[in-house]
């Protein structure tokens, strides 16, 4: 985290829904629970959230429905105005932006993908994808050229004259993705993009998404209610409940050290060896490295399972992608993770 430049920074953000949220907030002592607030006639969509997103990072916000994750991401793009707190994007306070500035920001820097796609039913695939370009006044020829590029990128070539209703759900979401990428945004918001798709397609789209991210390296805020999906995609995961972030950390840490009982409940059924990486489990070298062939820091414990069982060494050296030794992995500790005893 520390090595990345901060792109989105959210400090003590609150979003209350109700008749006069500002006034109500002023009257709060600060210790009210979600239910206290609800009894007062307000809904706390976002409750005192502070989080940073670094450049090129994929932050996955995970939570059950009603936990405030969609509200939070809409605060990042100021589709919702927060009640108090500050959110800055690349150093600019978006709450202080004029409508014109905000539009300019969205036109140049942000893209968003929606759960039910949010496609305009009266426009063809091509016109849907070119829509943000059209809004910022690009000429027809440029629009078409750029739209065709993204269509190719998401694998919809040949479908550009179709209307949304003529496409399958997966294809429609590809259109949604393509549209959000058309303006080449730096920041990419995805609000449960794959939830509306059936499981097989979902898996395929996740792979596709990872492929795209590898090519594009955007700063991503990804919302999901599917913990497996979060583990699969995330650099870091923020788990939300009742509008507040319960824990925000790397998948390994969440699985190994859940911060609250709520988070623990999520991790209980997870096969940790698939999530935890050798690099995370290793301790520092402290001068002397164990002998023998090193294991890759980026390998998961599960990937190392056979070696861990067969190897006789007590400690194994861990090397990074360049082959340099970075730490020591205790075999017993790794086996504990593998067998679920950790």
């Amino acid at each position: 985290m520390s090595d990345r430049e901060t792109v989105i920074s959210c400090r003590n953000a609150w979003k209350l829904f109700g008749d006069n949220p500002k006034k109500f907030f002023a009257s709060m002592s600060g210790s009210e629970s979600f239910d206290d607030i609800r009894r007062a006639g307000y809904i706390a969509g976002v409750r005192d959230v502070s989080v940073d997103v670094g450049r090129g990072e994929m932050l996955v916000i995970m939570g059950l429905s009603g936990s405030g994750k969609s509200t939070l991401v809409r605060c990042f793009s100021r589709l919702h105005d927060i009640t108090t707190g500050t959110i800055t994007v690349e150093g600019d306070d978006i709450g202080a932006m004029s409508e014109r500035e905000l539009i300019a920001l969205r036109r140049s820097k942000m893209g968003m993908v929606f759960q039910s796609f949010g496609l305009l039913p009266h426009r063809t695939v091509l016109d849907n994808i070119a829509f943000p370009l059209e809004m910022r006044g690009q000429d027809r020829h440029d629009r078409r050229k750029r739209a065709m590029e993204v269509i190719e990128l998401v694998g919809l070539s040949g479908r550009e004259d179709y209307f949304p209703r003529e496409l399958s759900g997966g294809q429609q979401q590809r259109v949604g993705i393509a549209r959000s990428l058309a303006i080449e945004p730096d920041i990419w918001f995805l609000d449960e993009p794959f939830s509306a798709l059936d499981p097989l397609i979902r898996r395929e789209m996740q792979d596709e998404f990872l492929r795209l991210q590898q090519m594009l390296s955007k700063t991503i805020v990804f919302i999901t209610h599917d913990f497996d999906e979060a583990l699969r995609l995330a650099d870091r995961i923020a788990i939300m409940k009742d509008g507040a972030i319960e824990q925000c950390d790397t998948p390994d840490q969440i699985v190994l050290n859940p911060a609250t009982p709520y988070v623990r409940k999520f991790t209980e059924d997870i096969e940790k060896s698939r999530v935890v990486h050798a690099g995370v489990l290793s301790r520092p070298l402290n001068g002397a490295a164990p002998e023998g062939e090193p294991v890759q820091a980026s390998a998961t414990i599960q990937q190392l399972a056979r070696q861990l069982v067969n190897d006789a060494r007590e400690d194994l050296p861990v090397a990074d992608a360049d082959g340099a030794l970075v730490g020591v992995l205790n075999r017993q500790q790794a086996l504990d993770v593998l067998l679920g005893d950790a």
Binding site: L79, F114, S116, L120, P132, R136, R179, F189
Partner: peptide
């Protein structure tokens, strides 16, 4: 649909 509206806003519509 609110998502269509949000999609429009995110596309930077005036």
């Amino acid at each position: 649909s609110p998502e269509v509206v949000e999609a429009g806003k995110m596309a930077g519509c005036t």
